[in-house]
Write a protein that binds this DNA or RNA. Structure first.
Lengths: 224, 224
DNA sequence: TCAACCGGTTATATGGAGGTAACAAACCGG
DNA sequence: CCGGTTTGTTACCTCCATATAACCGGTTGA
């Protein structure tokens, strides 16, 4: 689990980095807005912690930029007494905020909560019905069969479908969740991915039992 | 395994000492800064636990003094709400911190973690299945064969993999654990290290039985 | 009826990840 | 200071996941 932290206060940055590292997160640091955006592009973190007051681009701009490309959870940091900032931050798509000063432990707890909410929680081996997903090993087992190895994208897709087991997920949502950006014009990618995944997990890929199509909307994972 | 504890609160000191003694550590006690430094010089402990607020020299000074002479793991104790202290402590080279109040059990767990990280773990020579690691001697034995000498990095890599035997460990995590910092862009180092280690421990390095790669994720040690 | 659209399939190009080798730099004990 | 070992760096190769494109059949609605 990789976390991007952006704050121009180097001491605070290091303290946060240390705390998260101890909790076995991977940390990517940035001390100003442009660096944060660069780090986001290069490292593709799973979560971002952004200070609002930073030189270069403000936390707002960083938040907006990231949101334009990705749906990862974003937590904003602000100083007490500037609550109106928060409204703007949440408008721009931030998921949570924390008011300085805060204890490292608090930050850690909130980060865990965010990740849990985003369904990215590291440990939990997600499972529903006959589909058992092992995120760490990148494998699925269907009806207790042999583990099937999945690629990164296949795993993401299954994660999303599994999180909404037995319910249709729209193609647009899947595109955003799996690829992070992409306009919904890019359906070809999803078609391909579904096709490949079916060949891996379906007994008869021509008539899918698990990964079914919901015509005109999207796909659903039927787990019984 | 010898542990130095410095805290001016005698009750807490005794509680910690008792806990550690029960866990079969040797304990050296000090109730102020100068005593702590003296004890360090005379007893050469393997790890130090330092309260930040102490009469005489503060925990900071003690930390600095010890760091100037030694690389033993240092854990700082502080009271809740003084997080800025931690920044300074970590700057001075402390390895971990704990906020009072804490449970003895927590302290013990963190101490063990520190020792493990430093490769000083007292407990049983790490082993799982056919892989037996002797951390002191920097050697492995595979299926009871002859001991194989390992370099520092090889040892650490193997330690990490052994600690998660039969489970995939992500490349990013391995990089952080083995090299300590590093941007995760530096996968080449890991590739090389894996390559070298395979040539040492695998019967046929071209088709690894022990140190297997999990494509797109990382590596795992299969010990059966 | 037919054109537009949707979903499935196949084929091919491309880029990144991992393996290997060779070499350079740093380290270390004598 | 020397020689060997360990670690870091660069380059190249291969393979596979992903991206891109084209084609097919079915459905729908003008």
């Amino acid at each position: 689990m990789k976390v991007l932290i952006a704050d121009d206060d180097r001491d605070l940055l290091n303290l946060i980095a240390f705390t998260l590292t101890q909790a076995s997160y991977l940390v990517v640091k940035a001390t100003d807005g442009p660096a944060a955006i660069r780090a986001f592009d290069e490292e593709s973190p799973d979560l971002a912690v952004l200070d609002i007051n930073m030189p270069g681009a403000s936390g707002f701009q960083v938040c907006e930029t990231i949101r334009a490309k990705s749906r990862i959870p974003i937590m904003m940091l602000t100083v007490r007494g500037e609550e109106e900032d928060l409204i703007r931050a949440l408008d721009l798509g931030a998921d949570d905020y924390l008011t300085k000063p805060f204890s490292p432990r608090t930050l850690l707890a909130r980060i865990k909560a965010l990740l849990r909410r985003a369904g990215l929680e590291s440990s939990a081996p997600a499972a529903a019905g006959r589909v058992a997903l092992d995120v760490q090993e990148h494998t699925v087992r269907i009806s207790g069969g042999a583990p099937i190895r999945l690629t990164k994208l296949e795993l993401r897709l299954l994660q999303m479908l599994l999180a909404n087991a037995n319910r249709t997920v729209s193609s647009d949502r899947l595109l955003v969740q799996v690829w992070g950006h992409r306009n919904s014009g890019d359906r070809q990618l999803l078609k391909q991915l579904v096709h490949r995944l079916r060949h891996k997990i379906e007994a008869d890929p021509a008539s899918p039992q698990l990964l079914q199509t919901s015509a005109g909307t999207g796909y659903k994972l039927v787990v019984d």
